[in-house]
């Protein structure tokens, strides 16, 4: 086979693999989600920008390589020009141009980083603690722009939901395709409001975990002894359920501690929070009473 034929065969095979794969699961995607927060949209923008810059460079560089590989074949009688050994001018050019391209990427990347790290002026603070192998969420405080008011008694664990848990056991004989949101479903999701800057505090109880919901565009480690922070502001109108997973190896069941966030409108969220506080209030008084009587 000639080189061209082999290349064509390789391309054909790759194409076949891609089209075959696209069939099975319509929900499978190839690219980063645009997401529902300013941070995720910015990450997507930077991702696409860098990707296209790379594609453009690839077209030029791979083009030159392929051209040389085809044009200067010995089998086609090409004779080597052994005088081409050095050119300071060329070296300077192909040092300067990449530097300029990199500056072009560094400027928006730097701006993006500054935005991501600015966790001031949040409207709601929630603390997430990673455990082997579940998450705990505690609602810490709210801020209406003027005063910071603590939230007490709203805290719960969030672990892999039962159906996935049965199915994922070794040799369970159950079919993951029959389980809705297999491995991406929890018993108690985190509830947050849309249109509010939510500050998430992160820590680990035993080992390091990491909290990530792709549609929110941000992940951060939950490290024992540290409190990390990140922020999420879901655009209004994008209420819904968003799913992610722990993304730092945390032991045996690292693959089985998903993250589910339900985003509600401000009103719905306020109602939910009030209900939670109410539900926990009698319990809190009861605990106080028992402690007193002891």
């Amino acid at each position: 086979m000639s080189i061209q034929k082999k290349l064509a065969a390789a391309a054909g095979l790759a194409g076949l693999a891609i089209s075959a794969a696209a069939f099975g699961h319509p929900e499978s995607s190839l690219n980063l989600p645009v997401g529902v927060t300013p941070i995720s949209q910015q990450a997507h923008y930077l991702h696409m920008l860098t990707l296209w810059v790379c594609v453009a460079i690839a077209v030029v560089v791979f083009g030159a390589m392929i051209y040389s590989m085809v044009k200067f074949r010995k089998s086609q009688g090409a004779v080597a020009d052994t005088s081409i050994v050095h050119s300071t001018k060329a070296e300077i050019i192909w040092t300067i141009i990449p530097v300029l391209i990199l500056i072009g990427l560094a400027v928006p990347a730097t701006k993006g980083l500054i935005i991501i790290e600015d966790t001031r002026n949040s409207g709601l603070t929630v603390k997430a603690t990673g455990y082997q192998w579940k998450w705990q969420y505690e609602y810490i405080s709210q801020n209406d722009g003027k005063t910071e008011s603590p939230i007490s008694g709203v805290s719960f664990y969030s672990a892999l939901e039962e159906k996935s848990n049965f199915t994922r056991q070794l040799g369970s004989g159950l079919d993951p395709n029959q389980v809705e949101n297999y491995l991406l479903n929890v018993d108690h999701p985190l509830i947050i409001p849309s249109g509010v800057k939510v500050r998430l505090l992160l820590t680990g109880n035993d080992v390091i975990h990491a909290w990530w919901v792709p549609e929110f565009g941000m992940k951060r480690d939950a490290i024992p002894g540290f409190v990390n922070e990140m922020w999420i502001q879901v655009d209004e109108g994008k209420e819904g359920t968003y799913r992610g997973q722990c993304v730092e190896l945390c032991g045996r069941d690292h693959g089985f501690m998903p993250i589910v966030v339900v985003v509600k409108t401000k009103q719905d969220f306020a109602a939910w929070l009030a209900a939670q506080q109410q539900a926990s209030a009698p319990a809190a008084t009861a605990t106080a009473a028992t402690t007193a009587s002891l």
């Binding site: 929900e27 993951p176 395709n177 949101n181 491995l183 991406l184 792709p214 722990c246 190896l249 690292h254």
Partner: peptide, 18 residues
């Protein structure tokens, strides 16, 4: 890019094809 973490032994069906 579609969201599959590394170092996991099992995954959601959306990652099955690739």
């Amino acid at each position: 890019l579609a969201g599959m973490p590394r170092r996991i032994p099992d995954y959601n069906v959306q990652f099955a094809d690739w």
